[in-house]
Amino acid sequence: MEKEKVLEVKDLTVKIGEKNVLSSINMTAYKGRVLGIIGESGSGKTMLCHAIMQSLPSLAQITQGQVLYRQEDLMAMSASKLRAYRGRHLSMIMQNPATAFDSIQTIEKHFLETLKAHFVMTKKEMRQIAIDTMYKVNLPNVEQLLHYYPFQLSGGMLQRVMIALSLAIQSTLYIADEPTTALDTVNQKQVLTLFDRICSETGAAIILVTHDLGVIAELADDVAVMYKGEIIEQANVFDFFDAPQHPYTKKLLQSRITF
């Protein structure tokens, strides 16, 4: 299978003040593949996600490098074009689903608002899309669920609603920042299976950021290891587990708890 590049990060450096938060990051996400990024807390994983989405906090500055989405430089884009791209092409799935939703709007309103921002269609069509995508992510009693408020759903269900939202606008690149850390193990498994299905059915590229080796072992095709703002090792997932190169990677693999 020929690999089609969806996102390419070239020599990206981000600074906060004088300190390098990310130093010359190079990586590529391919169509229909999952790129796993693993690293401990404080290694710059979340910063990298924000740098790709061009949503860095104002203190942080990109000092060099490029972020290319299908050969287009996201950094050179105008704000309005970028806004159209976010969501439509690139979507981000956050760690904590509870804070990503507006707690005084129903789930239905979230769908309507998102779809209205990107497509021209009637309310009826929008509602149909919402119901279809929510079925796809295995949510129960979908019609009822639309009238619920975010706080009435559990964390696992909310995370699936969030994925359904990105699915509804047919994003081509998902950036999932610790999508399962706030969930329990049973929900975690369901969400990961869902990502797997999205990847093989829609051919989207997924960048999966995590600190859990199990998540990488379950889902990723390629792995990049981050340590103190640098990518210290990049490999195919099998090579990564079989023949780790960097001492930190070896230490990481030894920390697995075996059953």
Binding site: T185, L192, S200, G214, A217, E218, D221, F238
Partner: peptide, 19 residues
């Protein structure tokens, strides 16, 4: 169910392998 939700410690331990 809890047992099945344990993630593999190696990619060869996946339930199904894509492609």
């Amino acid at each position: 169910e809890l047992y099945n939700a344990i993630l593999p410690s190696h990619p060869r331990g996946r339930n199904k392998i894509r492609y």
